[in-house]
Amino acid sequence: MSEQTKSGTVPAPAASGVRAPWEAVPAELRAAVEARLGAAVLAAETQSGGFSPGVAARLRLAGGRRAFVKAVSAAANPESPGIHRSEARIAGALPAAVPAPRLLGSFDRDGWVVLLFEDVEGRTPAQPWQPAELDRVLTTVAELAALTVPEPLPVPPAAERLGEDFAGWRRIAADHAAGADDLAGLDPWAVRNLSRLAAAEADWAAGAAGDTLAHSDLRADNLLLTDDGRVVVVDWPWACRAAPWFDLLLLLPSVAMQGGPRPAEIFDHHPAAAGADPAAVSAALAGFTGYLLGHAREPAPPGLPTLRAFQAAQGAAALRWLTERTGWA
Protein backbone atom coordinates (compact mmCIF):
# COMPACT_ATOMS: atom_id res chain seq x y z
CA MET A 1 0.00 0.00 0.00
CA SER A 2 1.24 3.51 -0.79
CA GLU A 3 2.45 5.67 2.07
CA GLN A 4 -0.33 8.01 3.12
CA THR A 5 -0.66 11.20 5.06
CA LYS A 6 -2.75 11.46 8.21
CA SER A 7 -5.64 12.75 6.11
CA GLY A 8 -5.58 9.55 4.07
CA THR A 9 -4.40 11.14 0.81
CA VAL A 10 -1.30 9.92 -0.99
CA PRO A 11 1.51 12.51 -0.75
CA ALA A 12 2.55 14.21 -3.97
CA PRO A 13 5.89 13.06 -5.39
CA ALA A 14 8.71 15.35 -4.37
CA ALA A 15 9.89 17.83 -7.00
CA SER A 16 13.48 16.75 -6.65
CA GLY A 17 15.89 14.74 -8.72
CA VAL A 18 19.45 13.52 -8.33
CA ARG A 19 21.85 16.45 -8.06
CA ALA A 20 25.58 16.27 -8.63
CA PRO A 21 27.78 17.90 -5.97
CA TRP A 22 29.88 21.00 -6.61
CA GLU A 23 32.96 18.76 -6.54
CA ALA A 24 31.68 16.98 -9.67
CA VAL A 25 32.56 20.07 -11.70
CA PRO A 26 36.11 19.65 -13.08
CA ALA A 27 38.74 21.50 -11.04
CA GLU A 28 39.68 23.86 -13.87
CA LEU A 29 36.05 24.91 -14.26
CA ARG A 30 35.67 25.46 -10.54
CA ALA A 31 38.71 27.71 -10.75
CA ALA A 32 37.05 29.55 -13.64
CA VAL A 33 33.97 30.08 -11.48
CA GLU A 34 36.11 31.57 -8.72
CA ALA A 35 37.81 33.84 -11.26
CA ARG A 36 34.44 35.04 -12.57
CA LEU A 37 33.18 35.70 -9.05
CA GLY A 38 36.43 37.25 -7.88
CA ALA A 39 36.64 35.15 -4.74
CA ALA A 40 37.41 31.63 -3.60
CA VAL A 41 34.56 29.22 -2.91
CA LEU A 42 34.69 28.27 0.77
CA ALA A 43 31.59 26.05 0.84
CA ALA A 44 28.88 24.77 -1.50
CA GLU A 45 25.40 23.71 -0.37
CA THR A 46 23.58 21.51 -2.88
CA GLN A 47 19.92 22.41 -3.50
CA SER A 48 17.73 19.36 -4.04
CA GLY A 49 14.64 20.98 -5.61
CA GLY A 50 14.06 20.64 -9.34
CA PHE A 51 14.88 17.93 -11.82
CA SER A 52 18.15 18.89 -13.48
CA PRO A 53 20.76 16.13 -13.04
CA GLY A 54 23.54 18.71 -12.85
CA VAL A 55 24.98 20.86 -10.08
CA ALA A 56 22.75 23.39 -8.31
CA ALA A 57 24.44 24.85 -5.26
CA ARG A 58 24.58 27.93 -3.09
CA LEU A 59 28.19 29.08 -2.81
CA ARG A 60 29.73 30.82 0.18
CA LEU A 61 32.65 32.94 -0.98
CA ALA A 62 35.71 34.34 0.72
CA GLY A 63 34.85 37.79 1.99
CA GLY A 64 31.32 36.81 2.97
CA ARG A 65 29.54 37.10 -0.39
CA ARG A 66 27.30 34.37 -1.80
CA ALA A 67 26.37 33.20 -5.29
CA PHE A 68 24.36 30.41 -6.89
CA VAL A 69 25.84 28.04 -9.48
CA LYS A 70 24.17 25.73 -11.99
CA ALA A 71 26.35 23.46 -14.08
CA VAL A 72 25.77 20.39 -16.21
CA SER A 73 27.42 18.28 -18.89
CA ALA A 74 25.97 16.04 -21.57
CA ALA A 75 27.24 13.03 -19.63
CA ALA A 76 24.46 13.60 -17.08
CA ASN A 77 21.73 14.12 -19.69
CA PRO A 78 22.24 14.94 -23.37
CA GLU A 79 19.51 17.61 -23.43
CA SER A 80 20.48 19.46 -20.24
CA PRO A 81 23.36 21.57 -21.67
CA GLY A 82 21.01 23.01 -24.29
CA ILE A 83 18.47 23.84 -21.59
CA HIS A 84 21.16 25.65 -19.59
CA ARG A 85 22.24 27.59 -22.69
CA SER A 86 18.65 28.68 -23.23
CA GLU A 87 18.42 29.79 -19.62
CA ALA A 88 21.63 31.82 -19.92
CA ARG A 89 20.33 33.66 -23.00
CA ILE A 90 16.99 34.45 -21.38
CA ALA A 91 18.13 35.18 -17.83
CA GLY A 92 20.75 37.60 -19.09
CA ALA A 93 18.10 39.61 -20.93
CA LEU A 94 15.19 39.60 -18.47
CA PRO A 95 13.98 43.12 -17.67
CA ALA A 96 14.37 44.47 -14.15
CA ALA A 97 10.60 44.25 -13.60
CA VAL A 98 10.77 40.45 -13.63
CA PRO A 99 11.25 39.05 -10.10
CA ALA A 100 14.12 36.73 -11.02
CA PRO A 101 17.72 36.28 -9.82
CA ARG A 102 20.28 38.39 -11.69
CA LEU A 103 22.63 36.44 -13.97
CA LEU A 104 26.23 37.14 -12.93
CA GLY A 105 27.84 35.26 -15.80
CA SER A 106 27.92 32.04 -17.79
CA PHE A 107 30.36 30.02 -19.84
CA ASP A 108 30.46 26.93 -22.02
CA ARG A 109 33.65 24.87 -21.83
CA ASP A 110 34.82 21.28 -22.18
CA GLY A 111 31.27 19.97 -22.58
CA TRP A 112 30.00 21.79 -19.48
CA VAL A 113 27.62 24.74 -19.32
CA VAL A 114 27.97 26.85 -16.17
CA LEU A 115 25.60 29.59 -15.00
CA LEU A 116 26.26 31.97 -12.10
CA PHE A 117 23.41 33.84 -10.40
CA GLU A 118 22.98 36.14 -7.46
CA ASP A 119 22.04 34.08 -4.43
CA VAL A 120 18.48 34.54 -3.15
CA GLU A 121 17.85 34.09 0.55
CA GLY A 122 14.49 32.37 0.34
CA ARG A 123 12.61 29.09 0.56
CA THR A 124 10.19 27.21 -1.60
CA PRO A 125 6.49 27.29 -0.60
CA ALA A 126 5.45 24.86 2.12
CA GLN A 127 3.88 21.57 1.09
CA PRO A 128 0.98 21.11 1.27
CA TRP A 129 0.29 24.64 0.10
CA GLN A 130 -0.57 27.19 2.80
CA PRO A 131 -3.26 29.78 1.91
CA ALA A 132 -1.17 32.85 2.73
CA GLU A 133 1.79 31.62 0.68
CA LEU A 134 -0.45 30.65 -2.22
CA ASP A 135 -1.97 34.15 -2.16
CA ARG A 136 1.53 35.64 -2.42
CA VAL A 137 2.35 33.45 -5.39
CA LEU A 138 -0.93 34.16 -7.16
CA THR A 139 -0.34 37.90 -6.75
CA THR A 140 3.05 37.45 -8.42
CA VAL A 141 1.44 35.45 -11.23
CA ALA A 142 -0.95 38.35 -11.80
CA GLU A 143 1.98 40.78 -11.93
CA LEU A 144 3.83 38.57 -14.41
CA ALA A 145 0.70 38.33 -16.55
CA ALA A 146 0.79 42.10 -16.95
CA LEU A 147 4.33 42.05 -18.40
CA THR A 148 4.66 42.04 -22.17
CA VAL A 149 7.79 40.69 -23.84
CA PRO A 150 10.28 43.50 -24.46
CA GLU A 151 12.56 43.50 -27.45
CA PRO A 152 15.06 42.00 -27.95
CA LEU A 153 14.31 39.36 -25.30
CA PRO A 154 15.04 36.04 -27.08
CA VAL A 155 11.83 34.14 -26.33
CA PRO A 156 9.70 32.43 -29.01
CA PRO A 157 5.91 32.18 -29.20
CA ALA A 158 4.34 29.43 -27.09
CA ALA A 159 3.48 27.49 -30.25
CA GLU A 160 7.15 27.36 -31.22
CA ARG A 161 8.41 26.62 -27.71
CA LEU A 162 5.88 23.90 -26.86
CA GLY A 163 4.37 22.78 -30.16
CA GLU A 164 5.98 19.35 -30.16
CA ASP A 165 5.32 18.85 -26.45
CA PHE A 166 1.61 19.71 -26.59
CA ALA A 167 0.85 16.88 -29.01
CA GLY A 168 0.73 14.06 -26.49
CA TRP A 169 -2.82 12.89 -27.15
CA ARG A 170 -2.20 12.86 -30.89
CA ARG A 171 0.91 10.73 -30.43
CA ILE A 172 -0.92 8.31 -28.15
CA ALA A 173 -3.82 8.07 -30.62
CA ALA A 174 -1.48 7.51 -33.56
CA ASP A 175 0.49 4.85 -31.71
CA HIS A 176 -2.73 3.13 -30.67
CA ALA A 177 -4.02 3.14 -34.25
CA ALA A 178 -0.72 1.64 -35.39
CA GLY A 179 -0.92 -1.11 -32.77
CA ALA A 180 2.07 0.22 -30.85
CA ASP A 181 0.16 1.35 -27.73
CA ASP A 182 -2.53 -0.71 -26.00
CA LEU A 183 -3.42 2.28 -23.76
CA ALA A 184 -2.61 0.23 -20.66
CA GLY A 185 -2.57 2.41 -17.56
CA LEU A 186 -4.34 5.31 -19.23
CA ASP A 187 -7.32 6.74 -17.36
CA PRO A 188 -10.58 5.16 -18.65
CA TRP A 189 -12.09 8.60 -19.28
CA ALA A 190 -9.10 9.49 -21.45
CA VAL A 191 -9.39 6.19 -23.33
CA ARG A 192 -13.07 6.84 -24.08
CA ASN A 193 -12.38 10.38 -25.24
CA LEU A 194 -9.00 9.91 -26.89
CA SER A 195 -10.05 11.13 -30.33
CA ARG A 196 -11.78 14.19 -28.82
CA LEU A 197 -8.70 14.98 -26.73
CA ALA A 198 -6.45 14.72 -29.77
CA ALA A 199 -8.71 17.08 -31.68
CA ALA A 200 -8.94 19.53 -28.78
CA GLU A 201 -5.20 19.85 -28.23
CA ALA A 202 -4.64 20.46 -31.94
CA ASP A 203 -6.28 23.87 -31.48
CA TRP A 204 -4.31 25.03 -28.44
CA ALA A 205 -1.65 27.23 -30.06
CA ALA A 206 -3.89 29.87 -31.65
CA GLY A 207 -5.90 30.42 -28.47
CA ALA A 208 -2.82 30.62 -26.23
CA ALA A 209 -1.01 33.13 -28.44
CA GLY A 210 -0.16 36.51 -26.96
CA ASP A 211 2.60 38.95 -26.01
CA THR A 212 2.78 38.19 -22.29
CA LEU A 213 6.14 37.01 -20.96
CA ALA A 214 5.34 33.47 -19.77
CA HIS A 215 7.73 31.42 -17.64
CA SER A 216 5.86 28.26 -18.77
CA ASP A 217 7.29 26.05 -16.00
CA LEU A 218 5.82 27.56 -12.83
CA ARG A 219 5.75 25.12 -9.91
CA ALA A 220 6.53 25.38 -6.23
CA ASP A 221 10.12 24.23 -6.79
CA ASN A 222 10.72 27.17 -9.14
CA LEU A 223 9.51 29.76 -6.61
CA LEU A 224 11.36 31.28 -3.67
CA LEU A 225 9.61 33.16 -0.87
CA THR A 226 11.79 35.75 0.86
CA ASP A 227 11.43 37.12 4.38
CA ASP A 228 10.75 40.61 3.01
CA GLY A 229 7.58 39.40 1.26
CA ARG A 230 8.89 38.92 -2.27
CA VAL A 231 8.31 35.94 -4.55
CA VAL A 232 11.34 35.25 -6.77
CA VAL A 233 10.82 33.11 -9.86
CA VAL A 234 13.79 30.95 -10.88
CA ASP A 235 14.67 28.69 -13.84
CA TRP A 236 13.64 30.51 -17.03
CA PRO A 237 14.85 28.28 -19.92
CA TRP A 238 11.32 27.66 -21.25
CA ALA A 239 10.13 31.28 -21.33
CA CYS A 240 7.87 32.17 -24.24
CA ARG A 241 5.25 34.62 -25.53
CA ALA A 242 1.73 33.59 -24.61
CA ALA A 243 -1.71 34.67 -23.45
CA PRO A 244 -1.86 36.32 -19.99
CA TRP A 245 -3.53 33.24 -18.45
CA PHE A 246 -1.01 30.70 -19.76
CA ASP A 247 1.32 30.55 -16.73
CA LEU A 248 -1.64 30.37 -14.37
CA LEU A 249 -3.06 27.40 -16.24
CA LEU A 250 0.27 25.53 -16.17
CA LEU A 251 0.76 26.23 -12.45
CA LEU A 252 -2.59 25.14 -11.05
CA PRO A 253 -2.46 21.35 -11.60
CA SER A 254 0.72 21.19 -9.50
CA VAL A 255 -0.92 23.34 -6.82
CA ALA A 256 -3.85 20.92 -6.64
CA MET A 257 -1.48 17.94 -6.63
CA GLN A 258 0.40 19.44 -3.69
CA GLY A 259 -2.61 19.99 -1.45
CA GLY A 260 -3.95 23.28 -2.80
CA PRO A 261 -7.46 24.14 -4.05
CA ARG A 262 -9.06 22.77 -7.19
CA PRO A 263 -7.73 24.63 -10.24
CA ALA A 264 -11.13 26.00 -11.23
CA GLU A 265 -11.55 27.63 -7.81
CA ILE A 266 -8.52 29.80 -8.58
CA PHE A 267 -8.49 30.15 -12.35
CA ASP A 268 -12.08 31.29 -12.76
CA HIS A 269 -11.57 34.24 -10.40
CA HIS A 270 -7.93 35.21 -11.05
CA PRO A 271 -7.19 38.54 -12.79
CA ALA A 272 -4.85 36.86 -15.29
CA ALA A 273 -7.79 34.81 -16.61
CA ALA A 274 -10.20 37.73 -16.95
CA GLY A 275 -11.74 37.66 -20.42
CA ALA A 276 -10.05 34.39 -21.39
CA ASP A 277 -11.78 32.45 -24.16
CA PRO A 278 -13.12 29.25 -22.49
CA ALA A 279 -12.47 27.16 -25.60
CA ALA A 280 -8.88 28.39 -25.82
CA VAL A 281 -8.28 27.59 -22.16
CA SER A 282 -9.69 24.08 -22.55
CA ALA A 283 -7.58 23.44 -25.64
CA ALA A 284 -4.40 24.55 -23.87
CA LEU A 285 -5.31 22.45 -20.84
CA ALA A 286 -5.83 19.46 -23.13
CA GLY A 287 -2.40 20.03 -24.63
CA PHE A 288 -0.73 20.36 -21.24
CA THR A 289 -2.50 17.29 -19.86
CA GLY A 290 -1.50 15.24 -22.89
CA TYR A 291 2.09 16.40 -22.46
CA LEU A 292 2.18 15.33 -18.81
CA LEU A 293 0.42 11.99 -19.14
CA GLY A 294 2.08 11.12 -22.43
CA HIS A 295 5.55 11.66 -21.01
CA ALA A 296 4.63 9.92 -17.74
CA ARG A 297 4.12 6.69 -19.72
CA GLU A 298 7.64 6.82 -21.18
CA PRO A 299 10.88 5.56 -19.62
CA ALA A 300 12.70 8.00 -17.34
CA PRO A 301 15.22 10.24 -19.13
CA PRO A 302 18.92 9.75 -18.29
CA GLY A 303 19.74 11.27 -14.92
CA LEU A 304 16.09 12.07 -14.09
CA PRO A 305 14.71 9.00 -12.28
CA THR A 306 12.00 10.90 -10.35
CA LEU A 307 10.53 12.97 -13.19
CA ARG A 308 7.93 10.53 -14.54
CA ALA A 309 6.21 9.99 -11.19
CA PHE A 310 5.93 13.75 -10.74
CA GLN A 311 4.51 14.18 -14.26
CA ALA A 312 2.00 11.38 -13.67
CA ALA A 313 0.68 13.00 -10.47
CA GLN A 314 0.60 16.45 -12.03
CA GLY A 315 -1.12 15.00 -15.11
CA ALA A 316 -3.77 13.29 -12.99
CA ALA A 317 -4.64 16.65 -11.40
CA ALA A 318 -4.76 18.30 -14.82
CA LEU A 319 -6.99 15.52 -16.13
CA ARG A 320 -9.48 16.01 -13.31
CA TRP A 321 -9.68 19.70 -14.20
CA LEU A 322 -10.10 18.82 -17.88
CA THR A 323 -12.97 16.46 -17.18
CA GLU A 324 -14.73 19.25 -15.26
CA ARG A 325 -14.20 21.77 -18.03
CA THR A 326 -15.32 19.54 -20.92
CA GLY A 327 -18.25 17.78 -19.26
CA TRP A 328 -17.57 14.76 -21.46
CA ALA A 329 -18.88 11.44 -20.18
Rank of each mutant, 00 (worst) to 15 (best):
2 S>Q: 10
2 S>H: 08
7 S>K: 12
8 G>W: 09
20 A>D: 12
20 A>I: 12
44 A>H: 00
45 E>F: 05
50 G>F: 04
52 S>F: 14
52 S>P: 07
53 P>N: 11
53 P>F: 10
53 P>R: 13
55 V>K: 12
56 A>Y: 06
58 R>P: 04
59 L>D: 06
64 G>D: 12
64 G>V: 05
70 K>I: 08
71 A>Y: 13
72 V>Q: 10
74 A>S: 14
86 S>N: 03
92 G>H: 02
100 A>Y: 01
105 G>R: 03
110 D>H: 09
113 V>L: 05
113 V>G: 04
116 L>H: 10
120 V>N: 05
133 E>W: 06
136 R>E: 11
153 L>R: 01
158 A>Q: 07
169 W>L: 09
175 D>L: 15
177 A>Y: 08
179 G>W: 12
184 A>D: 12
201 E>M: 07
203 D>S: 13
205 A>T: 15
211 D>T: 08
217 D>P: 02
224 L>G: 07
224 L>R: 04
228 D>F: 00
230 R>T: 13
239 A>T: 00
243 A>D: 11
252 L>A: 11
264 A>V: 13
265 E>P: 07
267 F>K: 03
272 A>K: 13
272 A>L: 10
282 S>A: 14
283 A>W: 04
299 P>F: 02
312 A>K: 14
324 E>Q: 14
